[in-house]
């Protein structure tokens, strides 16, 4: 086989790989510098001579982990994210099922209401939420954060789950009912296993929401004890002193790692979840 005919035959795949390489570089390029900088000294990031660190030192990682508060903030983030994700899943499953299976009055209005949160800038919600939670005496509590994070995750979740439930053949449900399954059995044994990829997708989006959220935690909490990882990241970048970028970057990479691990664990299901869920 000569080169020409090889190129001709495989022209599509060559094009595809060309684009994939671009995609690869595009996604990872910004991350590379950040990763390299985590081994540097504070002022070394301004050094133009080389982007490789002079010395591969793990001191920044050590400093982040050895901070007593890191563990505390990590637990805060973990707790808030976990609870709000569980709540978001429950709401999304129920709401998604309603939209997928029932025709009812106000369906369109309710769907529209679900869209609204996407169109308001997050920053402008902080003031009203503060006033609301102050009224309820919930400032400086996990509850306030959990409620806010759940609320921001639910609309997307309902949308995704409704797509999944539409993909479940109605006949399957009817068969289960004929077999005498009760509604909760139907949900638990039939619908949930089938729509598990959808649930995982909702979880990832909700985890992302809770894990990275910053404006709400900034306004709704004042106590140092209540800080989450993104808040601490903000506190680290201090414009009044010499900004320790390597430390900031180390911290932010370390906050990305847990969510990346979760994502990579379920990556196949999640991506297929988005991919198959939203078609219907």
């Amino acid at each position: 086989m000569n080169l020409r005919s090889f190129l001709y035959k495989n022209s599509t795949q060559i094009m595809v790989w060309f684009i994939i390489v671009i995609l690869f570089v595009w996604v990872l390029f910004p991350l590379i510098w950040t990763f390299l900088s985590t081994f540097k000294q504070p002022l070394e990031v301004y050094d133009t001579s080389s982007f490789l660190p002079k010395e591969w030192s793990l001191s920044n990682y050590h400093e982040v982990v050895s901070d007593d508060n890191f563990f505390r903030f990590f637990i805060n983030s973990l707790f808030i994210t976990t609870v709000s994700t569980i709540l978001a899943i429950v709401c999304s499953v129920l709401g998604g099922y309603a939209f997928a299976r029932y025709a009812f009055r106000f369906r369109h209005i309710l769907l529209l209401i679900l869209l609204v949160p996407r169109i308001i800038p997050r920053a402008s919600l902080t003031v009203p939420l503060y006033m609301g939670f102050a009224e309820l005496g919930l400032l400086n509590s996990y509850t306030a954060l959990i409620i806010s994070y759940t609320a921001t995750a639910v609309p997307m979740g309902v949308w995704i789950m409704s797509g999944f439930f539409k993909g479940v053949p109605k006949a399957l449900e009817e068969a289960a009912i004929v077999d005498g399954a009760r509604p909760w059995q139907l949900m638990w044994y039939v619908l949930i296993p089938i729509t598990l990829p959808g649930i995982l997708t909702v979880s990832i989006f909700s985890i992302r929401e809770g894990w990275n959220e910053f404006p709400f935690v900034l306004t709704l909490t004042t106590s140092t004890e209540m800080r989450t990882l993104p808040y601490q990241l903000y506190m680290l970048s201090d414009s009044m002193g010499i900004q320790n970028w390597p430390l900031v970057n180390t911290f932010s990479l370390m906050t990305i790692i847990p969510i990346l691990i979760v994502y990579l664990m379920f990556e196949k299901k999640v991506v297929n979840g988005i991919v198959s869920g939203s078609v219907k």
């Binding site: 609870v83 709540l87 429950v90 919930l138 400086n140 509590s141 996990y142 509850t143 959990i146």
Partner: peptide
């Protein structure tokens, strides 16, 4: 469950 969460977290604080 929701109430429990609210209760717990208040207790937490």
């Amino acid at each position: 469950a929701l109430m429990l969460v609210i209760g717990c977290s208040q207790e937490d604080t």
